[in-house]
Design a protein around this nucleic acid. Structure first.
Lengths: 292, 292
DNA sequence: CAGGTGATGTGCATTTTTGCGCAGGCGTTG
DNA sequence: CAACGCCTGCGCAAAAATGCACATCACCTG
């Protein structure tokens, strides 16, 4: 059965009982309806209607088609209802991806957003590999660093994270506080394991201290925070994160040159949908607190 | 949801994952597929697919459509199977209509035909009014008299009924046998109540006897036979009917001018179907016995 | 019984849809 | 790193579907 439109035409003829009535319902000329019926009957080799002066009466075959097409029409109507609603309302899945180091920030926001929208399922994907928006693996991505420039993606600057240098009280008890830039070489640091890290604060650290002072190197942001908390050394942390940890001691004021950009990235096809837009505006609202 | 073909196109794209693959399955150019997708998305206001270099990935909406359209495709496939089969095999209903006076002939044939085709339901309609083939009230009609000339009907001569003049033994006991045409006025007859009856034997009777000799007039053929059997008078009866009633006495040899034509009539839309054709050939086979 | 209404069906002009060729991009492979 | 394969996307010409006007027929109505 190719050409589903002819099925739809035959369905309306069977329902109305006349070609003219079906044509009016379908919004086409009655000649078109006649030709559709002739085409589908010729293709199937079965007479669906008996023609007479008062209209078209469905044969047994036509009645069979009527039943099937009626069900199809219902199914499609329901589908359209779901699809149109889905475009406007916030439901189904919302897939967000970011580096795992941002989970502390995102998870509370995602949780609150989900509670605002019953029927919404949050899938928060973090991991080593970048989940790809262009293949539909995620709806929204939070990316750090330079502005991504994938052509099909909508990129908008999200926030600049203020970064400070912190250490735990236990570290201060053992090594004292940091007395300005010149004192850097007398301390030990928690840093990234990646020598090529593009994060501006990492580059700054590599430039202002010896390599040997970075005595604890992590591949993961979360681990870095844990290391700082455990007193392994001085390390960078967003002021927002640090403010939640009263045990930390600020070793150096935040500098602009440390600040990292965060980007919100969505696929162009999904960017206009209400679901994504609601989440983005909600996320921006909540994130104002991060920039203190 | 108007334009079911676009649903079908979107369904294949969702199934294949690429526009090109869908185009090949559908047997159309890939540009057509792209245009269909753009059209249905614009109409619904919902993105069904995310475009990327490797193909089209269905969104949640697209997956919803995929499920619905998959079910539709299955339903249509089954429908086509039924319809194509229905055209060839003898099943469903077979609606036959005739004057009630022919039920003695038709009922045994219909019964045997039904037993040859399990799954076939026979509807044998008799009655005063003519059931109309052109509205689908019946598949096959057995008509007597002049050739029907409805334009949409397929009419074929079926049989000529040999008609004889018969009376019951009880009538003969009282009035004796008929001694040729000149003796007609000395007998009494069972005839039709309709003065304008076009049946040739009725016209012949009106021409060759006085009106007053027709002392028992019926509107119905079955009643006429009953009247003859009861000895009410001499009457016309098909030789086939008379042969089943040994009590009857032949009063006059069949004459060609009495013979009535029987016509098989089918609607042109149903005439080609195997169901109708099988019945017609079976009916012709069985009816050879009637013409003895 | 004659006129009106509403249905089907057909030839022709028009509009819409489709096909074709080619450009451009991404990923893989040797 | 270059060549290849496979995909999308677009402009233009051809083809197909559609709309229109009109003819015809059956049935109803006054």
């Amino acid at each position: 059965m190719e050409n589903w439109d002819e099925v739809r035409t035959a369905y309306q003829v069977a329902r109305m009982g006349t070609v003219s009535g079906a044509a009016e319902v379908l919004g086409v000329h009655h000649a078109t309806v006649i030709r559709h019926i002739e085409a589908i009957e010729a293709r199937l080799g079965v007479k669906l209607f008996q023609r007479h002066a008062r209209g078209y009466t469905p044969t047994e075959s036509g009645q069979d088609l009527l039943r099937v097409a009626q069900a199809t029409d219902d199914q499609f109507s329901q589908l359209v209802g779901r699809l149109k609603g889905q475009g406007d309302e916030v439901s189904g899945e919302l897939v967000v991806t970011s580096l795992s180091s941002m989970s502390h920030l995102l998870v509370p926001v995602l949780t609150e957003f989900q509670q605002m929208h019953p029927g919404l399922v949050i899938r928060y994907l973090t991991g080593e590999r970048l989940f790809r928006l262009e293949y539909g693996e995620a709806h929204v991505a939070l990316r750090a660093g330079n502005a991504p420039d994938q052509p099909d993606n909508v990129v908008q600057p999200f926030a600049r994270q203020r970064i400070g240098l912190f250490a735990s009280q236990s570290y201060v008890d053992r090594h004292g506080v940091l007395e300005g830039i010149d004192d850097l070489k007398n301390h030990q640091f928690v840093g990234t394991d990646n020598e090529n890290s593009r994060a501006p604060f990492n580059k700054w650290l590599r430039e202002h201290t010896n390599e040997e002072t970075i005595i604890f190197r992590c591949s993961d942001g979360v681990a870095m925070q844990e290391a700082i908390m455990a007193g392994a050394g001085i390390g960078f942390m967003s002021t927002w994160e640090a403010s939640r940890r009263p045990d930390l001691v600020k070793m150096m004021e935040p500098r602009e040159e440390w600040e990292g950009s965060l980007w919100l990235v969505t696929h162009v096809d999904l960017h206009r949908t209400n679901k994504v837009q609601s989440f983005l505006s909600f996320l921006k609202e909540r994130s104002k607190a991060w920039q203190q």
